[in-house]
């Protein structure tokens, strides 16, 4: 996983959180994980297929999700399971959509699948060629985790090479 593929996701998360929460964010921790993903709170997962394949997970605890939702809505919202899930999915949608936009402009082509909730405590294990990058965005209203496990699509890569691209 190259940094030029990862960087748009970091930039996008920073921009979406900063705009939605009207605050600045900081990356609190950053690590590579080869172990199976362990959910921290409420996790929304988006799969990508195309030139680069894999999944991105946005994960935050329920209290933070309610605060994020209230801030984005401009009104205090009561906590509910559906609000918490929706917030995680919408954050994932916006962060990943904006990153994909930037990557597409660099010549990568993808299909973005709708977010799904990642419900199990322990989830999909990264393989040796898709180790996951996990980072924590610290905001004044709580932490938002992003877990990225992507790899180049070898077949597409080979097809492009044989076509002389």
């Amino acid at each position: 996983m190259k940094m030029d593929v990862i960087q748009p996701f970091i930039n996008s998360a920073d921009a979406v959180l900063a705009q939605g929460l009207e605050c600045s964010t900081a990356i609190g921790s950053l690590s590579m994980e080869e172990e199976a993903y362990r959910r921290k709170g409420v996790a929304a997962m988006v799969w990508l297929t195309g030139d680069i394949e894999g999944r991105i997970i946005i994960d935050l605890d329920p209290e933070t999700a309610v605060r994020v939702a209230s801030k984005m809505a401009g009104a205090e919202l009561p906590e509910s399971d559906s609000l918490v899930r929706e917030t995680a999915c919408e954050l994932a949608n916006q962060i990943i959509g904006n990153a994909i936009t930037a990557l597409n402009d660099q010549g990568f082509h993808f299909r973005v699948h709708p977010p799904v909730m990642h419900m199990s405590e322990e989830g999909i294990k990264s393989s040796e060629d898709t180790e996951a990058l996990v980072m924590c965005f610290e905001t004044p209203i709580g932490s938002v985790f992003m877990n990225i496990a992507l790899r180049y699509n070898r077949k597409r890569h080979a097809d492009a090479a044989s076509a002389g691209h």
Partner: peptide
């Protein structure tokens, strides 16, 4: 949409 690349 959050996916705002040109071809879309």
């Amino acid at each position: 949409s959050s996916v705002g690349y040109q071809e879309n």
